[in-house]
Design a protein around this nucleic acid. Structure first.
Lengths: 343, 343
DNA sequence: AATTAAACTTTACGCGCGTAAATCATGATG
DNA sequence: CATCATGATTTACGCGCGTAAAGTTTAATT
């Protein structure tokens, strides 16, 4: 039960009978001091409330224990979850993570990096906005501070990249859709900000070719991160016009699919794999809401726990060894097919 | 185009011809120095890249310009949005906000406050987890640092509270539902962690009495923050059993309603206000996904921009005047009825 | 008991900046 | 031209801690 407040280490040194430099050692690594002194310190800490001043600590350290985490859009539950996993990985490793969102704006992304820079982080885990990101600025930042990218890759920027294998997962989905019904059309935005979208489209084209089926790509207008709106408006329009040559649509991501499902419902189009349904819709990402759509969405689950941990581990290694990997490593993890009712 | 790097203000003083104390003044408030010297400094800054060390600054200031923002669950888009609004309000006022999520855990909530404490924030804006929050610990924290609560109230903790007027909004909804069809039943969790749930239930009972209708409250089991799951499982069960005495259900929040809509769809129960529908479902909060449910959800929109700005403004005033309000202020803002297709 | 490495204490300096006091330069004012 | 307020400069100290060097104690080892 802490009673009297203690203002600094000098005062704690007096009441604990341990010298200040030793206290400094203790707070840096409690295991680095003799057991008997550790006990003395901790006994004093039970009586006197005290924690070292972070600002004074960080001012004097070359590198802090801070790690910056930047995601493009925290209002998207996918990024909230993956961001949280990265946070946890940092905490487990004894770092202080700071999670920031770019809110879909490349400018805010740079602002975030700038404010991180003033925090002298040991490293940064960045899920970039994508094609709209200011690549030169990020590259310049990455020259000062170790950066590991995740989720969305920008070639040659940062020490490493960890993400999901779009080739694998899209091929998995295309195979499933082809063998369980009509081959899928592909639905996406014309100018997607996320580079994953590009690799997914290419993966779709490749997989369809391998299946010996004709590919049909539908690209719609739309800017920003309001994917549900785009899926609903533009996807709904395509459904209404009967534009899709097959009864199956693979959406580039779940949020587009969620919007399209809403539009289908509005038009009284029944979606699903049963006989009464006329359309199948599938997505990608296993968005937290995908199981509550009508009908529940068939999709690909990214292993974001592994992505988060993988990216963090690489960064920790760079920080510990103080040497970047000899060449930039790109790690691609495989997703799982989640079969629900929509396709 | 910054060329040579400058390490501290002393070096900048040399190259700019301005003394260090004056530079310090400049960085604290650029308008506090003479125009001619401001120009000199900024000319030097264009040539030499430099920004003052945050840690050294904050170590020497009594109060920092940091403001902590803690929300209960950042994976809930509602809190992501309101958290973002609070962040923006802080930035506009010249503070450095730090947004943290408790992830539904009262323990993490305390951890967040603890790590904030070491950042010596000028104040904290807290949306507490709710009834599960450790009220004593929060109260003790609030004695050290100015705290303003928002979204969810805990009586007598913090200097003020800003939230939405549940009495008003529930009454608005009940009136609408009663005049447009059968009177609503009320669907909620038995042990909700959020105190808003309690006031909403009471508001429902009061409104129904005022309308001269019989109230029917249905409370279901379920823990944690996975509201969609609870709404789907438990709400779905009630629908299947035909437990609701009227054809209209008012859910305590949108996330429960989203789950219940998914369950209704699965059971082939058509939800909406048209003739073909047999059930009406309404929610509360205008969750970002509420417009993409099947059918789109009728709900109450909280004015979270006003809530965020209101809470922030009160905190700024406390910080500026260095005096808490004479008595704890509770501000309740009125929501708007959002009529969609579900009720 | 003598030896010795490990851990501790003492002393001292530095980090980068806030800030106060005394002094000095500047330009507007009457 | 003298007056004077405003703002700059010089000087100096302090914040709380990291960290290095030199000397001293502790506890394990032979």
């Amino acid at each position: 039960m802490p009673q009297k407040k203690i203002r600094n280490m000098d005062e704690l040194a007096k009441v604990s009978g341990i010298s200040r430099p030793t206290l400094s050692k203790y707070f840096n690594d409690a295991a680095s001091v003799r057991d008997s002194t550790r006990v003395k310190v901790e006994k004093a800490l039970q009586v006197f409330d005290f924690r070292p001043n972070v600002y004074a600590i960080n001012q004097n350290r070359r590198r802090t224990r801070n790690i910056g985490i930047v995601v493009p859009y925290l209002a998207d539950p996918f990024f909230t979850e993956i961001g949280r996993e990265v946070e946890l990985a940092c905490i487990r490793a004894g770092y202080s993570p700071i999670l920031l969102s770019s809110h879909g704006s490349p400018q805010l992304e740079l602002d975030n990096l700038e404010s991180l820079r003033s925090l002298k982080p040991a490293g940064v885990l960045l899920a970039p906005c994508g094609d709209t990101s200011d690549k030169n600025a990020i590259a310049s930042f990455a020259r000062e501070i170790p950066v590991v990218l995740f989720d969305s890759n920008i070639p040659n920027i940062g020490e490493a990249f960890v993400g999901s294998n779009n080739d694998f997962s899209i091929s998995l989905m295309v195979q499933y859709l082809c063998r369980s019904g009509q081959p899928p059309c592909f639905f996406e935005m014309k100018t997607p900000s996320n580079p994953n979208a590009l690799t997914r489209r290419q993966a779709y084209l490749d997989s369809m070719a391998k299946q010996g089926e004709t590919a049909h790509v539908f690209q719609v207008e739309g800017q920003g991160w309001n994917f549900e709106e785009i899926g609903s408006t533009e996807g709904g329009r395509l459904l209404a016009q009967g534009s899709f040559p097959t009864n199956t649509v693979l959406c580039s991501n779940d949020r587009l699919a969620i919007g399209m499902l809403a539009a289908a419902y509005k038009q009284n189009i029944r979606v699903g794999l049963d006989e009464k349904s006329t359309v199948r819709i599938a997505g990608h990402d296993d968005h937290p809401f995908a199981r509550y759509t009508c009908p529940p969405l068939t999709t690909i689950a990214q292993d974001y726990v592994a992505i988060a941990q993988g990216a963090a581990d690489i960064l920790f290694q760079i920080i510990d060894t103080e040497t970047p990997p000899s060449s930039r490593v790109e790690t691609l993890l495989e997703g799982r097919l989640i079969m629900r009712d929509s396709a």
